[in-house]
Structures are given as C-alpha cells and as structure tokens.
Simulated scan of single mutants.
Amino acid sequence: MRSSRVEELITIGALARASGLTASALRFYADCGLLAPAEVDAATGYRYYTRSQCERAVLIRRLRGIDLSLEAITEVLAADLDRAERLLDAHVAELQRRAKAAARVAAQVKRALGAGHGTAVPAAELARAIAQVGPAAAVDDSVLTGILVEADATALTLTATDRYRLSTRTIAPLRDGGEWSAVVGAATLASLRPWLDSIDEVVLAPRESGFALTSGDAEHDCAGIAEPFPDYRVVLDGLPAVRTRVLMPRTALLDLLETAGDDSLVCAVDGSVLTVSGAVAATRLPAVVTGAPMDLAFRSTVLRPAVASAVGPDLMVDLAAPDQPVVVRSATDGDLTTLVMPTFVPNTEDDR
C-alpha cells in the first residue's frame, strides 16, 4: 500500500522567524513570483508555507544580501550546480566582502546574547531607515512630527506620515526584545544618525515614555509623544485594488529622474516596457508588467525621493488608477513602502 505524507503548513510569521526575513519581505517575494506560498486561505487571504520552503527563503535572503537582482536569483535557484557556480563567480568580490561582514555580525550577535532587554538591530540600517522614513513626517502637527516605532518578534517598523504622504520601513532584528511601540520626534531621531553610523549595533529598549538606544556604555533617551499615532494600516488596507503591477530595476529609473530636474513626467506602462516622457525625449525602460496598460503623470521632485530611498536593486510599483496613490515597494531583509500621489492626466480622446 502506498502512503502519502502531507507536509505541515506554517504561518508567514513562523517562516519569517525561521528565515530571518520579515513577513512584509516574504509578501514581496510572493507577489513577484520568487517564493509563492503553498496555500492561501480564500476567505481570509492568510498565506501559509511549508517548512521545506525555509531553505529557499534563507537562500533568497543571502543572495539579496549580495545585491543580486530578482532575475539573477531566479536563475541561480533554477540552475544546475555548474551554472549556479558560474553565475555566483561574478560576485566573488562581494562574497569576500560578505565574509568580513559575517565576522562582524557574529561579534554583534555575541554581544547581543549578553546584552540586556531590548530589540537589537544593525545601527547603520536604523540610520538609513530614519533617513528614508523621516521626510514623510509633518512639520507643524504634534504627533505627525514623530516617527512611530513598533517592535515585534520579526521586525522593527518605522512609519511616518503627514496625511498626504506615507512611508513605512521594516528592519529584521538581530534579537527579539518583545512587542512594544512608541512615537518619537523625527528630528530627535535624525540627530542620532551620525552616532548610529559610527557603531555596529544598537539596542532599543522601551521606556515609560519613548525608548532608549544603547550601544556599549553609550545611551540616548528619546522622549515619546503621548498623542496616539494614526492607524496607518487602515490607510494601506483601504487602498483600491491593484490593477497593474510593475517590476523594474531601481537604478535605471533613478538615473532618469536625476536628469529630469523639476519636469512633470508621464509614465506609460504597457507590456514589458515603462516609457517615461517629459520635456526631454521619451525613454523606454525594461520592466515586467502584470495587468492593464496605464498612463500616469508625476512631478519628478515627488517621485524621485521615493525611488532614491528604496532598498535593494528592484522596485515593485502597484497601480490602481491614474488618480489614485501609487504604492512603491522594495525589499532586502526588510522592506520599504511609500505612497506617491500622481498628477491625473485626462484622456482627451475620451472627453470629446
């Protein structure tokens, strides 16, 4: 008699903890087809994975850590051993750099194991997250001048919004410090970036008001803002359904935006091409487009910061309609999500 074995399903949170990726990064890799869940609950939308997928998730994390594009990772994981080795040989210099970085991480983990209670993260990653999220904070509203910092077992999340823009960034922690949250002034956190860039690891520990950042003998107290922060997840959950998804190299689009000045740009998405036009000649950028063609317009000064602050070599852009917020997503071990409002360009032929 032949027996069959049904492999145990685990939640996305369990896979995140086992692989070192955040749940949001796993959703990113699922949406781009690199690591699809084994099962999706039709009623709730919850994603479930098998334990055997942890190995693939870890490989994806490691390959992203040396800045391989999603296309290159797909090739490596699908190739036989000889071809995979040839593909990876092109990154020998980066692998040597990672070996040195691994030694630093091992030292950080040793220190983290002996440290007190708190959420430990790479200090440079926290500095970058503050720089990426901080510009979305308001300048004249008490709670919205702050950055919401949330910690749980799989991520440290920083979020800022001025009700017109919204940016949220996650970082995979080196050590879980429990679940907690606090709102701290964006200017306060920005002032700590030079210090964070000078150290390897920092521990965030909640206080009665705000939290403290510690590294060795150095400690910085960050006073909290008592007013409740808006529920940004309601904003994200309330976005219209995605009609078109675009996956593209970040650098190519950023190089184009850097030369566009303050021009208004029209982005036409169709097939496997993103065409960007404005005061200069139209430029065609390679892209993987899923869904209906769509034309949108942006001020380059609005779109550029969202692209410049993204993490990793690839961008995923979710489009609902020409007059609805565009969701710009990127991921490595954590992810960054930014909402960008386009300028609506009417279809003059339909208006006749």
Score class of each variant (00 low, 15 high):
Leu88Tyr: 04
Arg104Thr: 08
Leu81Arg: 09
Arg83Met: 08
Glu94Gln: 11
Arg86Glu: 10
Val105Lys: 06
Asp82Gln: 07
Glu94Lys: 07
Gln108Asn: 04
Ala102Ile: 13
Lys110Asn: 05
Ala102Lys: 06
Arg98Pro: 12
Ala93Trp: 12
Leu81Thr: 11
Glu85His: 13
Val105Arg: 06
Ala84Gly: 10
Arg111Tyr: 02
Gln108Val: 07
Leu95Asn: 04
Ala79Ser: 10
Val109Glu: 03
Ala107Leu: 07
Leu81Gln: 12
Arg104Ile: 03
Ala93Ser: 10
Arg86Trp: 07
Arg86His: 10
Asp80Pro: 07
Ala99Cys: 13
Asp89Lys: 09
Leu87Lys: 03
Lys100Asp: 15
Arg86Ile: 08
Gln96Arg: 15
Leu88Trp: 03
Val109Asp: 04
Ala107Trp: 00
Asp82Trp: 03
Asp80Ala: 02
Ala103Trp: 04
Val105Met: 02
Ala93Gln: 14
His91Phe: 10
Leu81Pro: 05
Arg86Phe: 04
Arg83Ser: 04
Leu87Gln: 04
Gln96Thr: 14
Leu88Asn: 07
Ala99Thr: 14
Ala102Leu: 15
Ala84Phe: 02
Gln108Thr: 01
Leu87Glu: 00
Val109Cys: 05
Ala106Met: 01
Asp89Ser: 15
Leu87Trp: 00
Arg86Gly: 06
Leu81Ile: 09
Val109Thr: 05
Val109Leu: 06
Arg83His: 10
Lys100Glu: 15
Arg111Trp: 01
